[in-house]
Simulated scan of single mutants.
Amino acid sequence: MSLAQQRECKSSDDVLASYMNKDKLYIHYQPIVDLHKESVIGYEALTRFPPSAYFKSPVELFQFADQTNRLFQLEKHTRELAIDSIIPHLQERQQLWVNLTPNVIHDDSFTPGFTHTILKNTGLNPDQIVFEITEHSAISDYQSFRKLLEHYRKQGFKVAIDDVGAGYSSLQMISELKPDYMKIDRSLITHINQFREKQYMVEALQQIGKKLGSGIIAEGVETDGECLHLIQMGISLMQGYYFAKPDYPPPPLPKSISEQVKLQGYSQMFPLKIDERTTFSELMTWISTYMGSYDNYFALIQGKGVLPLTEVVRFVVSHSTKTKETVWSHLRSWFT
């Protein structure tokens, strides 16, 4: 090794060592929630550090570690930090989600098994750890990486693919790795309630997940409309600022959000309300613009109860010539 190379290695060692100081790197956690169970099922560990002259983001730090053949050293450090920090807060049935960079297997110092060793004295079980592989990661050797994942799975660990739908390699990565979870990228989730094209894409991923037995998680949920539409599509696992920003200690599911989702979920079952002034024309317009499901959804009939939406459609079709009339008198006879 030349003197210049020795200086470069020493310099990169010094830089990385400074970031692995306990006062420099820290972990924030963002909850992953299950709205059907109204609970937090796990936390994603996110590496953070104060503003730096060297790197603008953790992504740049990990890229630097990869380029200098120190990726395993950095990943091991951050994973130990994430596990140590979460122990007082992680409940028995909750999971910790940690990043796994595919390129780590090419690091000269890489040795599998260190995560299992870390867990021995923590009280955590391997099935509480989910290795999260970003879709942006380039996997040059699927055969070797699959073997690594098989090793982890035999120990009880779970595997997730992050950012699904953000790049061109999603389908190959899904088919090759057969993940336990697929996290749908926020680019498909943002304003999903307003764009049918995004809905079609997410529906397709739902079908793939169903065939493979993979759980579907929506990332980047930020609004009521997005949350409600995802519930309507049958997606209950979500993550995003709508629930909590990354923080430490790990943030719980806010009670106000839990109560709000419960109320919204209830009201979502009754997307249509009919009263004495409702006309057939208004019902026809509503049916033509309604984008939700008809199965297990109802119309609230003022003072009379509920009517399945499928029955509402039959009712309107059977009175298709009465567009300008109110529905009330005809609806009474329909009920009797």
Rank of each mutant, 00 (worst) to 15 (best):
I139F: 09
T278C: 08
D295S: 12
T321W: 09
N125D: 12
V316D: 02
I217H: 04
I208F: 06
S187I: 08
T101Y: 15
A160Y: 06
V98T: 03
L300Q: 15
Y54T: 09
A82R: 03
Q143H: 14
Q155R: 06
A160S: 13
W97Q: 08
P112H: 03
H319E: 00
Q30A: 05
I231A: 10
R186M: 14
F131S: 04
S214E: 11
Y242H: 07
K147V: 13
H136V: 07
L149C: 03
Y26D: 07
F145V: 01
Q128L: 00
F270K: 02
H319G: 02
Y241H: 15
Q194A: 14
I133E: 08
S137E: 14
L205V: 11
F195M: 09
T285C: 07
I41K: 04
T68S: 04
R48T: 02
H36F: 15
P249W: 05
T323K: 13
F315K: 02
K76H: 12
F243I: 13
V327Y: 05
F243S: 08
M201H: 10
L188R: 00
G292Q: 00
D295T: 09
Y168K: 14
Q260G: 12
T190S: 11
I217D: 06
S329Y: 12
I86W: 00
S11C: 12
Y43G: 06
E80V: 10
L100R: 00
R93G: 12
S18W: 07
P31E: 08
I189A: 08
I235S: 06
D66W: 06
R186A: 14
M201W: 10
Y241F: 08
E282I: 06
T134G: 14
H89E: 01
Y241E: 10
P252T: 01
L74K: 04
Q199K: 11
S267L: 15
A299N: 02
E75T: 07
P271N: 02
T78E: 01
K304N: 10
S318C: 09
A45T: 04
F243M: 12
I231G: 10
I129T: 03
T47H: 03
A218T: 04
S11F: 13
M201E: 11
S18P: 06
Q30S: 08
L177W: 01
K158V: 02
D162P: 11
E222S: 04
P252C: 07
S236P: 10
V261C: 07
